[in-house]
Design a protein around this nucleic acid. Structure first.
Lengths: 238, 238
DNA sequence: TCACTATCTTTCCTATAGGATCTTTTCGAG
DNA sequence: CTCGAAAAGATCCTATAGGAAAGATAGTGA
C-alpha cells in the first residue's frame, strides 16, 4: 500500500514466488475488471506478471479451490461464471450455519473479544460513512473507498471466527470468503444497504457487550438473513 | 481395483496427469505407511511415480489445502503431524456442526433418500461384520477389509450430504474427510467401536424411515459425539 | 570436550523447450 | 449460401536443466 503496486514483480520477498502470484491474480479477480467466463491463459498471465508458467500454474490450482476460477482438463482455466440463484441460496445457507456456530462458540467468552469487535465496528462505521458520502455526492465512487468498506466488513466477521478458536471453522469461512466478496461487489447498489448493514452489525456488538449469547446469535442470524434478502433483491433487479 | 495398482503411471486416462498423481499420493498418505513429520521431496516423488516434478508440485498444492501435508516456503513439504487433543476437539466441533446441519436440511425430504441410506447402511453393516470377524479371528486384519469398512462408513454420511443439495456443505465435508479418515485408522482398536458405530448408524436410519426430523438430528448428534468419545478414549490410551 | 565456521550435498524453486491437444479459420462441395 | 472437413495457430501440458537456498558434515580453535 505504498503508492501504486506495479503489476511486475521483480523482488521476491522471502516467501516464494507462488504466493505473490496468487495474491496478484486474486486481487485482479476480486477487483472485478475481468469478464466472467473469459479465459485465463497460463502463458499470458505468466508474461503479464513477468514470471514463468510454473508458479502461475501453482497459484491457479490454489485459486481453483476457492471457486473463483474453473478448470477443464486440457482446456485451461476460466473465470468462474456469476453465482446463480440456487448457488446464492446455498452459499447463504452455509454462511448462516458458520456465522451462527461461530457466534455461539464465542459469545460466552464475549469479554475477551468485545474490544476487538468494537474497534472493528468503529472502522466499519467509518468506512461506511465515507462510502455513503461518496455515493450521495454523485459520480463515480473511488475503488479504494469500496475496497476499504469491504475489508472492514470482512474484518468484523473475522474477529469472531478468529476468537472461536476453531481453525476449521476459520478455514471454512475463508473458503467462502472469496465467493462472498465477489457477491458483495456485484450487489452494492444503494446507500440503504450500507446503512442497514451498519445497523445490524451494531446490534451484534450490543449483544456482545451485554454478554447475551442468545441475543448475539439472533442478531447475527438476522444480519446474515438481511444480507441474503438484499442480495436476492438486487439479483432480481438486474 | 483390478488386481494390484502399479505405482507407475504410463497411460494418462483423459483427465490430466495432475489428478492421477494427486490420487496416488493421497492414497499413499491415507494408507498410513508414512511417518508423520517426514519429508515429502518433490523430486523423489516425481522419480518414484516416474513423472516430472511439475504435476507433483501441482498435486502437492492441492494436498496442502486438505491439511494432510504442510508446506514451509523454500523448505519443502512434510507429512502433517498427528492431530493433537485440541485439534481433535476442533475437528469434531466442526464436523458436528456440518452433520447436524446436513441432517436438518435433508430429514424433511427423508423419503427421497431413505432408499440410498438403507443401502449404504446395509453395506456398512456387511463390511462391519466382516471386519469384526477378522478381528476376533486373531492375527492381522487385511488392509482391504478395513479399507472397505471405512469406505462404507464415509458413504453413509456422504449420502446425506449429497442429498442436502448444498454444494458448499458437501465441499466442507470433503475437506474434513481427509482429516477424519486419517483419524479413523489411528483409532480403530476394538470390536466394540465397530458395533457401537453400526448401532448409531442404525438409529439414524430408523429416524429417517419414520420421517422424524428431530429424532434424526438427535441420532446424528449422538453418533458424532460417540465417535468423539471413542477417539478421545483411544487417544489417551496410546 | 565443546562451540563455531566453512564447505559440501541435497533439495527446492524457477526458467526454457518441445510434444500433444483444442480452437479457429479457411477452403471446397453440395 | 450453408455445411462439413482440413490445416494453421494458439494453448495447455510435461520434461529437462540450472541457479539458489537450506541442512549436514567435517574441521579448527578455544
Amino acid at each position: 500500500m505504498t503508492a501504486q503496486l506495479p503489476l511486475r514483480i521483480g523482488d521476491l520477498e522471502r516467501r516464494g514466488l507462488r504466493d505473490r502470484v496468487y495474491d496478484l491474480i486474486l486481487e485482479m479477480l476480486l477487483e472485478g475488471d475481468v469478464e466472467p467466463g473469459s479465459r485465463l491463459s497460463i502463458d499470458t498471465l505468466a508474461k503479464q506478471l513477468d514470471v514463468s508458467p510454473t508458479p502461475v500454474r501453482e497459484a491457479m490450482v490454489q485459486l481453483e479451490r476457492t471457486g473463483l476460477v474453473t478448470r477443464e482438463a486440457l482446456k485451461g482455466y476460466r473465470v468462474a461464471p456469476p453465482l446463480g440463484p440456487d448457488q446464492l441460496s446455498e452459499l447463504f445457507d452455509a454462511r448462516l450455519m458458520l456465522e451462527v456456530e461461530a457466534t455461539r462458540l464465542v459469545a460466552p467468552r464475549a469479554a475477551e473479544v468485545v474490544d476487538d469487535l468494537r474497534e472493528a465496528h468503529r472502522r466499519h462505521t467509518e468506512t461506511a460513512d465515507r462510502l455513503v458520502e461518496a455515493m450521495e455526492h454523485g459520480g463515480d465512487v473511488p475503488v479504494r473507498t469500496t475496497h476499504e468498506y469491504f475489508d472492514a466488513d470482512s474484518a468484523f466477521h473475522r474477529v469472531i471466527f478468529e476468537a472461536s478458536g476453531n481453525r476449521y471453522l476459520l478455514a471454512m469461512q475463508e473458503d467462502l470468503g472469496a465467493m462472498t466478496h465477489r457477491l458483495r461487489q456485484a450487489v452494492l447498489r444503494g446507500t440503504s444497504d450500507v446503512r442497514e448493514a451498519r445497523m445490524e452489525h451494531s446490534r451484534v456488538l450490543d449483544a456482545f457487550e451485554r454478554g447475551d449469547t442468545e441475543a448475539a446469535v439472533a442478531a447475527m442470524r438476522a444480519h446474515i438473513e438481511g444480507v441474503r434478502t438484499r442480495s436476492v433483491r438486487d439479483e432480481q433487479a438486474s
